[in-house]
């Protein structure tokens, strides 16, 4: 199977996502954790390794994993198809013999790449500024955790955009209400939180346990299984919906 179709769709989606000065989102989001790290080391006269590690954990877990990543995933995931549905241009993609799963897979991959480009360089730079090395175990851990979380968020928000035109609002509510607070109320609900999967995987790869309040009790194997199941389910929803999507004209 030639990848020309995927490359063409990917190029179109990339330009749709990062056009109209939306590329500014990349330096802004990447710059924020770097700026915080720079301020931190300027403020600390005698920087201890433990403090640096704790600061990085808090910064990456609360600012990047809890805020920047879900927001970037929401914007890129929901827009990768939602924008074309909104302005009617999806007709040009759907009026082709391309299997619908190929369209979903390509759009998901592009939105995922855009999301990672929005947060990962900032994470690596922040790690370098505070910990003195971008390849620190904690940074490697967050790279894996954030990548998995981005994939799940993007798949979820892309699927949501196929079911409703209010994907951005509903997605934001989900991020704030569920991921932000409700999922952490009980141990049972933690198994239904992307943030928990990401934290568990981060801990496993970094071979450490994050501070109390930031850590996850989920076993890494459980997090992997649940992540795979969630991704499979969300991708299936999206593919099924795209196969049966009606392009209704504006009245």
């Amino acid at each position: 199977m030639s990848l020309r179709v995927e490359l063409s769709l990917a190029s179109l989606t990339w330009r749709l996502l990062l056009g109209r000065r939306r590329w500014l989102f990349l330096p802004l989001c990447n710059g924020f954790p770097v700026l915080m790290s720079w301020i931190f080391i300027r403020e600390e006269q005698e920087l201890r390794a433990a403090d640096a590690l704790q600061f990085t954990e808090v910064l990456l877990a609360t600012v990047v994993l809890s805020v920047l990543l879900p927001l970037a995933s929401l914007i890129f995931g929901a827009m990768s198809m939602g924008q074309e549905i909104e302005d009617g241009t999806l007709a040009y993609t759907l009026a082709k013999p391309t299997a619908r799963w190929r369209i979903v897979a390509t759009k998901t991959a592009v939105a995922w790449t855009a999301t990672l480009a929005t947060v990962l360089p900032g994470v690596w730079l922040a790690g370098w500024v505070v910990l003195g090395e971008p390849g620190h175990g904690l940074i490697r851990g967050f790279t894996v955790g954030l990548s998995v979380a981005a994939l799940l968020y993007v798949a979820g928000f892309l699927a949501l955009s196929l079911y409703t035109r209010r994907a951005l609002i509903l997605g934001l509510l989900y991020v704030i209400a569920w991921e932000g607070s409700l999922s952490r109320l009980f141990d049972g609900t933690r198994t239904l939180s992307v943030r928990e999967y990401a934290t568990s995987l981060t801990q496993a790869v970094a071979d450490l346990r994050l501070d109390e309040g930031l850590s996850s009790p989920l076993q890494p194997s459980t997090a992997v299984m649940l992540s795979l199941a969630a991704f499979g389910l969300l991708a299936s929803f999206a593919i099924h919906k795209l196969r049966t999507l009606e392009l209704v004209e504006e009245v």
């Binding site: 179109l12 749709l16 302005d87 009617g88 241009t89 007709a91 040009y92 009026a95």
Partner: peptide, 11 residues
């Protein structure tokens, strides 16, 4: 099948 939709919006 070739389709030319009415909506003007293109890329």
């Amino acid at each position: 099948v070739g389709i030319v939709p009415e909506r003007e919006t293109l890329f």
